[in-house]
Amino acid sequence: MDFDSFVEGPLLWVVFFIVLIGVIARVVFFLYAIIKSGTDRDFRWGYSLATFGRSFVPFHNAVTKRPLYAILRYIFHACLIIVPVWLAGHVALWEESRFGWAWTALPDAWADWMTLLLLALAAYFFFRRIMVKDIRLASSTSDFLLIGITALPFMTGYFLTHGSLDSLPFLGDNMWTIHVLSGEAMLLVVVSLFCRTRLSLAKCTGCAACELSCPTGTLESNDEGKLRIFTYSHYQCICCGECVNTCPEEAAELRHEIGLGGFFQIVPKLEIRSVQLKACDKCGAPFAPEPQLDKIGQTLTGDYLRFCPRCKKLDFAQTFYQLSPWTKKLKTANNHP
C-alpha cells in the first residue's frame, strides 16, 4: 500500500476513531469535573447550563467588549463547521463508504464563497495577530500555528476543486494527499483544543474579581504568604466569558490552547498567574496585590496606602486616643514630675 492510499484509507479511519473517542472522553471528563467541583460549593446547574448554551449565541459576555471582532469570529467558525460537513464532495464520499450515509449537500457556489470568506478571515486574524502590538506580545507560537492548520485544508480543498495549481510539478500531483493529511491534522488538533482564560501579565492587577465572577469555580485565587496564586482547571471551564466581562483592566481573555497536557489534567489545577502581595508597613501582613496598589497610587496619594485596613483603623482610632483624657493626664504627669 503506498502512502497516498494509506493517508486516505486506514489513517483517516484511525483519525475519525480518535476524534470520536476524544470527544466522548472530553464530555465525560467535563461532567466529572463539574460534578466534583459542585459538591463543595453552591453550584447552580441551571445557571451553568444556561451560560454554556449562551456561548453559542453571538454577543454573549465574552465578546460584548469587541462586537465587530466577535461577528467575524462567529462567521469564521460557522464556515469552519458548515463547509466540511455539507460539502457535496464530502457527502458523496460518505455515501460511497461502507456506511452509505447521505445528506443534503451545500450548493457548490455557496461552499466556494464560504471557503473564500473563511480564508480571508483567517488571513485577517493572522495579520491582526502580527500587526497589533498588544496581541502579538500576548500570542504564542501555537496561536499562529493554529490559524495555519485551520486554513490549510480549506486552501488545498479550494485549489483541488478548481484545479488552479494543477500545472505545478509537486503540488499538482499531491494536492489530494496534502488536503486529506492537513484535514486529519486539523481534526486531531480540534480534539486537544481548549478555550482557556489568560490573564495578561502587563494589565492584570491581581484583584481577583474574575474569581468572584466565575460561576463554576474554575478560576481560583489563593493567598499563600506574599503571593496570590491564580489557578485554573480546564474541564470546569464552561467558557461563559464572565471573567472577560468582569475584568476592570481588560486583562482576562479566552483564547485557544492546544495541548495534550490539558487533556489529561482532569481535576488538578493549573497555576496560571502569581501576583506579589504588598505587606503592610506597620504590621507586615500582606493585604493587597502590588500592581493594584500602584494603580490606586495613580489616582490617590497618601501614606495610608502603605498600611493594611486593620492598621489604618488603628491609626484613625489613635488620633482619638491622643485626645483622650487618659493621654492628657499622662502628659501633664510627665510635665510636672
Binding site: A209, I296, K312, L314
Partner: peptide, 13 residues
C-alpha cells in the same frame, strides 16, 4: 465586581 480597590483606598479602614 469585588476587586477590593476601595478596601485598599479607604484611609480609615
Amino acid at each position: 465586581i469585588g476587586c477590593r480597590a476601595c478596601v485598599s483606598a479607604c484611609p480609615f479602614g
